[in-house]
Design a binder for these strands. Structure first.
Length: 585
DNA sequence: CGTCTTTGACCTGCGC
DNA sequence: GCGCAGGTCAAAGACG
């Protein structure tokens, strides 16, 4: 709204400039005409431009519409064309009269434009005032709610302090503009590497965005970093890191671990992976599979997939590295999220504020002092050689989480003695996939999913064959009546993330958004997502498509049947070639 | 026949 | 220095 107004205002300003330019143009033409006369060119009949050459008639840099008249006054004096001064004076007089007319009309026009501009300014100011007023009301509401929890209390304190971030939840599909830093250092590998990176910088990225409005420079936070310092493999392919990464985690690889409930062998994230190894890790009877990105031959990104020892239904996928190639559109969602998580991890941030893609995902950060930050359900650890951030998509946020859950799996060190967990909350859903349909068509990426998802309180359908998008808030109220969930966006976020079907629904919604516009399927997907009784359609056809039907299914998600055995990895378990993005994990 | 997975061997880092 | 565990390599086999 604000932006459009500014645009409009700018447009008005341009109009003003156009008028001024037109005036100058007239003057210029007059000057050139007079100059032509000066060299003996006969002016057209009826052309009342002065016959007298006059250097003063040349365009002046001054606003000087009045200059026209003033220079016209000198015409008769300086005339050297052989005409009498009287003739020259008559011509000058008529010319001056015409110019005066033009001047008057131009002045009148400018006056009108100025008035309109003033009106628009007032209108803009009024809207800005209303906007701020509403903003303050919203903050007040959030502040009241935040009193009920230490997490929100901190937010309120931040608001009151005026220096900390003030949160605005928005789930956005947007472009990341800040990959510029990532690729600066190491491009030992292919020469096209950098170009691809540059190309990718403008690509679509998709993230759950929890923006801190009114916070200085937080929106334009640092570029998404490559969380992975160079590994042995990376040394020859890419630098794998920026200075900050290297400074903070020298010789350490940052990883983003994602826990999902998933019956499929691997989490389908839209990227192409090739299995290159498998190991039985100590303490876990389930083998750990090692995958490498095969979208580009030199891509250093790896991922590890392992079942949780405690709960075999939980799939733990660990990403590391940075894609040095454009990503399939369907892979950008996961890439952005994990990239943001890694970025947060590597920036050493104990606040989510610097990583918008993680905001709104109920992230707790905790340290030894037991003080809580706003990072529930995200585990952050550097226990081993790699700082790892865990995004937990499996469970409902718990106040005691994650310390009990991850304490054994991710022992902390003195330096990174923090536990951060990020939860989408899906304790029941068995669709751990985070698959987003591919599409090459650009969409109005910056959408607020809060609005777009159209949460309307409908009862979710029991199966994915139907619209499964539930009333997250209502459902959450029913499930946890003791938990106050006030009617605020923060509460909505909490409710959304706590809902078991959120993953699927969100994935579908994002699929719809991204996939829309590429073809009919995309449009259909969008319609499914945003129409249909206000529910987010969880397009059953998408989820029922077999992965074997081809890796390139624009606008489709892939749902592997639950009977698939863990680690009986199908070929092309996660493929989605298509459009490009560029992301790091 | 090309691609991918499997799997044992090898390498590397870390703790003792 | 040694052992352990994680991670990677590469040959062999499977599959379409």
């Amino acid at each position: 709204m604000e932006e459009s107004l500014m645009k409009e205002k700018r447009s008005r300003d341009d109009d003003i400039g156009g008028v001024a330019l037109a005036v100058k143009k007239d003057k210029t033409s007059a000057s050139s005409a007079s100059a032509a006369v000066g060299v003996g060119v006969v002016p057209k009949v009826g052309d009342k431009m002065p016959d007298c050459e006059n250097d003063d008639m040349k365009p002046s840099s001054s606003p000087g519409i009045k200059d026209l008249s003033s220079t016209s006054n000198k015409v008769s004096v300086k005339s050297d064309t052989g005409r009498t001064e009287a003739e020259c004076s008559m011509a000058s007089s008529s010319s001056r009269q015409k110019q005066d007319d033009q001047l008057e009309s131009a002045k009148a026009e400018m006056g009108e434009v100025r008035e309109e501009n003033q009106r628009l300014k007032m209108y803009l100011n009024r809207i800005m005032k209303d906007y701020r007023k509403l903003q303050m009301e919203f903050y007040d509401t959030v502040g009241q709610d935040s009193n009920k929890s230490p997490v929100n209390h901190q937010e309120q304190r931040a608001e009151e302090g005026g220096e900390e971030e003030i949160e605005l939840v928005s789930l956005t599909l947007g472009r990341f503009s800040g990959d510029s830093k990532r690729d600066d250092k190491g491009k030992a590998s292919s020469s096209s590497h950098g170009k691809e990176e540059e190309r990718g910088n403008g690509g679509l990225s998709l993230a759950l965005d929890y923006k801190f409005k009114a916070s200085k420079s937080e929106v334009d936070d640092e570029p998404l970093q490559n969380p992975i310092p160079p590994s042995k493999a990376l040394k020859t392919t890419e630098s794998g890191g920026d200075d900050e990464v290297l400074q903070q985690n020298p010789a350490k690889k940052a990883r983003v671990c994602i826990r999902t409930r998933c019956d499929t062998p691997t989490m389908i994230d839209g990227c192409q992976w090739r299995k290159y190894g498998q190991k039985i890790a100590k303490g876990n009877p389930c083998p750990r599979a090692y995958y490498r990105c095969t979208v580009a031959p030199s891509c250093p990104v790896r991922k590890q997939v392992q079942r949780c020892a405690q709960d075999m239904s939980i799939l733990i996928t660990t990403y590391e590295g940075t894609h040095n190639h454009p990503l399939p559109m369907s892979a950008t969602a996961m890439a952005s999220t994990t990239c943001a998580a890694a970025s947060m991890l590597l920036s050493g941030s104990t606040s989510t504020s610097s990583h918008p893609a993680l905001h709104g995902l109920n992230v707790y950060l905790s340290d030894n002092s037991k003080s809580k930050f706003y990072l529930p359900n995200t585990s952050l650890s550097a226990a081993l050689s790699h700082p790892t951030i865990t995004l937990d998509l499996t469970s409902t946020p718990s106040p005691s989480f994650p310390f009990n859950r991850f304490s054994s799996a991710f022992p902390t060190t003195s330096r990174y003695n923090t536990s951060t967990s990020l939860s989408f909350g899906s304790s029941e859903s068995n669709s751990g996939l985070l698959t987003y349909g591919g599409s090459s068509q650009q969409q109005p990426y910056t959408k607020s999913l809060i609005g777009s998802l159209n949460i309307n309180g409908r009862v979710p359908q029991p199966t994915i064959e139907n619209n499964i998008y539930p009333s997250f808030m209502q459902k959450n109220h029913q499930r946890n009546p003791q938990q106050p969930l006030p009617d605020t966006i923060a509460a909505a976020t909490k409710a959304i993330t706590a809902d078991p079907n959120f993953q699927s629904a969100l994935a579908e919604a994002l699929t719809s958004i991204i996939g829309a516009g590429k073809n009919g399927g995309g449009d259909l997907a969008q319609k499914r997502a945003f129409a249909a009784n206000g529910n987010i359609g969880c397009g059953s056809s998408f989820f029922n498509k077999s992965p074997s039907s081809g890796g390139s299914q624009p606008g489709s998600s892939i749902f592997l049947p639950p009977h698939a055995l863990p680690f009986s990895t199908p070929k092309n378990a996660s493929t989605s070639p298509g459009d490009t993005g560029n992301h790091s994990y």
